[in-house]
Amino acid sequence: MLTPEIALSFFGIAILLALAPGPDNVFVLMQSAMWGRRSGMLVVLGLCTGLVGHTVAVAVGLAALFAASETAFIVLKLAGAVYLIYLAWGAFRARPDTHAASRPPRQSNATLYRRGIVMNLTNPKVSLFFLAFLPQFTSAARGSVALQTLSLGLLFIAATLLVFGCIAFFSGVFGELIQRSAKAQRLLNYFAGTVFLGLAAKLAFASR
């Protein structure tokens, strides 16, 4: 099972990754800023619900891969490392966008919740990211890899709920920070890119 040290370090990194500007948190931000905290929180709950599906899928897949062969593990870790480097490259090259976004339309509560689920489940990059990210914090020596992965997924969901919930609650403050401060956007992107590179290096040299 997960040790307290691993759980804490994973949760800290998940918080940082959730803070990095992206389409999901920007959508939460704009819905909250325009239509109130309730609208933003409904989107957040939908996104977190979608993450449950990705977590279960990755947990089952990782368990099978770890049990398969050394070759499967090597292919997985190298593919994950390459993908993390790609994410780092994108983060470092991302340009701040300080233009005011157009006013999003008001939507029903059920529509906002469903949209959050669909936005997450239909994004294959989430599963790819989980496949690249979660194995670095699991070990067959600590028991079931599937259970460890599920635990990590729940921690990631908790981090997402915390960060995105704060964005929804403090939408005015975050709106000023993320939408109008190029410096803040560059800083967050730089931190995210650095984390991605570090994770890629760790994954590339990981042992089974």
Rank of each mutant, 00 (worst) to 15 (best):
F73S: 11
I85C: 04
G90W: 08
A88W: 10
R93S: 10
F73D: 06
A68Q: 11
D97R: 02
I74E: 11
V82K: 04
S69F: 00
E70D: 15
N109R: 15
L87E: 00
F73I: 03
L84M: 12
S108N: 12
A79P: 06
Y83C: 04
Y86G: 06
R106T: 15
W89P: 01
T71F: 13
K77M: 07
Q107E: 13
E70Q: 10
S69K: 02
R103T: 14
A72Q: 02
L78R: 01
F73Y: 08
V82Y: 04
R95L: 09
F92T: 01
V118S: 05
T98D: 10
K77D: 05
R114Y: 11
A94I: 10
A72V: 12
G116C: 06
S102L: 13
A68S: 14
A67W: 07
I117E: 01
S69W: 07
V82L: 09
L78G: 12
A68C: 08
E70H: 07
L76A: 07
A79L: 08
R106I: 14
R95E: 15
D97N: 12
T98P: 13
R95M: 12
A72F: 03
Y83F: 10
P96L: 10
R114Q: 15
A91E: 08
A94Y: 08
R115P: 05
G116K: 03
T98V: 15
Q107M: 09
Y86P: 06
R95F: 14
V75T: 02
I117D: 08
Y83A: 01
P96V: 11
R115G: 01
G90Q: 11
R93G: 02
G80L: 01
E70C: 03
T98E: 15
F92Y: 10
A94V: 10
L87R: 01
A88R: 02
S69N: 10
I85F: 10
A94W: 13
L76Y: 00
R95D: 14
T111M: 12
A81H: 06
G90D: 01
Y86E: 00
P105G: 11
T98A: 14
R115I: 04
A100M: 12
R106M: 13
S108Q: 10
P96E: 13
T111I: 11
L112A: 01
T111F: 05
A101F: 07
A94Q: 05
A110P: 00
F66H: 05
I74Y: 11
F66N: 00
A81I: 08
T71P: 03
R93C: 01
A110I: 09
A68R: 07
A88D: 06
H99Y: 09
A68G: 05
A81F: 06
V82T: 02
F66I: 05
L84S: 02
A110D: 09
R95T: 15
V75M: 08
R106G: 12
A91S: 04
P104M: 11
A94P: 12
G90K: 02
